[in-house]
Design a protein around this nucleic acid. Sequence first.
DNA 1: CGTCTAGTTGAGCCCTGTCAATAGTAGTGG
DNA 2: CCACTACTATTGACAGGGCTCAACTAGACG
Lengths: 210, 210
Amino acid sequence: MMRAAAPARPDAALRALGRVRHFAPQQTIFAEGEPAAHVVLVIHGMVRSCSTFSDGRRFIGAFYAAGDMFGLERSPGYLASAEAVCETAGIFYPAPNWLDIIHAQDGLSRRIFGAVMQSGEQARGHARLLGRLCAIEKLAMFLLECHQRADEGLQVTLKMTRQDIADYLGLTVETVSRCFAQLKREGLIGFRSSRELDFLDVPRLRNISG
Amino acid sequence: MMRAAAPARPDAALRALGRVRHFAPQQTIFAEGEPAAHVVLVIHGMVRSCSTFSDGRRFIGAFYAAGDMFGLERSPGYLASAEAVCETAGIFYPAPNWLDIIHAQDGLSRRIFGAVMQSGEQARGHARLLGRLCAIEKLAMFLLECHQRADEGLQVTLKMTRQDIADYLGLTVETVSRCFAQLKREGLIGFRSSRELDFLDVPRLRNISG
DNA sequence: CGTCTAGTTGAGCCCTGTCAATAGTAGTGG
DNA sequence: CCACTACTATTGACAGGGCTCAACTAGACG
C-alpha cells in the first residue's frame, strides 16, 4: 500500500519531539515481534514492511516513502519487520500508548477507535493471506478464523455461501469446493451438511495454513 | 478479515446512542459511494463488506459478526458496500466526524491518527488488488501508485528491486519481469534503465488496472 | 577484467480457472 | 405428498496463467 504524497518536511516543532535516524540500504529498522516502542515518520528514502512465513516465503505489506508514517501497532510487538529499501532517514517518536488514548475517549469513541485499529490489523492479515498462500492454505486459514470466533467448540456453522468464501479468498467456487473435499478426504474436517462442519484435526489445519 | 470475538451485547447506555435496524439475507445495508453517515455495530447475524470491479468481479474484504463494527471511513463516502449474509441486526451510530477528532488532538497525535486511518484504507486496497487482479493488472496498478506519489511528472525511479515488487504483488520475479516487458512491448511504458521508466500512456494503464 | 547481484528470457509443468454436467436442498403450489 | 423450480454445491474435463528451473545478459564494484 503506497500512501498519497504528504509533506516530507514536518514542522520543526514536530521534529523536535522525535529523534532522527539514518539507515543504509537493506538495513533492518525493526524486526517482527520486537517491542513496538516507536512510530516512524519517513523523511526521505523508502521503507518496506515485510513478514516472512515459516517456509521462507516473504510478503511485503507496504512501501513507505517520505511523509508516510509506520510502526502503528496496538499490540506490544511489531507485527511485521521494517527494512530500508535504499538510503533512508526517519524521525522516531515514542509509540503512543493506545490504551491511554482509547480510555481517554468516551464509551462510543473508545469503541470506534479500537475498531479502527483492529480493522487495519485484519486487513493487513488478509492481504498477507491473499498474497502468499495457495488455495488449500487459504481455506485452512479461513476455517481457523471461523473456529476462533465461533465458540461452538469443534463445530462451526458457516453463514456464507461458497461464492462468498471464494470472493473473500480470491478463488473460485469450484476451487473452494475442491479444497473442502480435500480437507475432508484427509480427515481434517467432517461435514454434517455443506454449511455445518466439524474440526477433526485443528493442529494439522494450523500446520497447513502456514 | 474476521474479528476476534467481542461482547455481542453492548452496554445499554451505548445502545441508547444508536438505532437498531434489522436486515434480511442478501439485503444491502449500504452501498459503495453512498455518504458514510453511520458506523454499525453488529448485534447478531453476519455482514460482508464487498466491492465490485467494472467487469463484474466481486471481492469480499471482510466478514463482520456480532460485536464487530464496520463503516469506519475517513472519506465522505463508503469505499465498499455492506450486505447482510443472513438474518442480521445492527446498531447504527452517527459516523464520527474524523476531521473534528483529528483536529482535537495535538500535532503529533493528529498526525498519528491520520496515519492509522490511511494505513487501514491502504491495506484494504492492497487486499482487493491481491485478491482479484491478474499479474499484468497488478503491475499496472502498482506503477500507477508509484506515478501518483512520485511528482516526477511522467518519469519514475523505482527504489525497490523486482523481488520486492513481486513480494508486494504476490507474484514471482520472473512474472514481474515478463509483465514489464509486455507493458513495454505494448507501448505503455519505456525504460531508461531497469529502475527508471517513463509513462507513455497513463489512460491505458488505468484501463488495464481495472 | 573477474565477480557478484539484479534482471531478462525461454521451456515445461502444475495449480487454479473455465466450462459443463450432475446432485443436493429449500421453497412453492397443486 | 409430490412435482416443479431455483439456487447452492460438487465433480469432471480441459485450458491457460503463472510458477519452477535454468540459461543468459547487464550493470556495479573492486
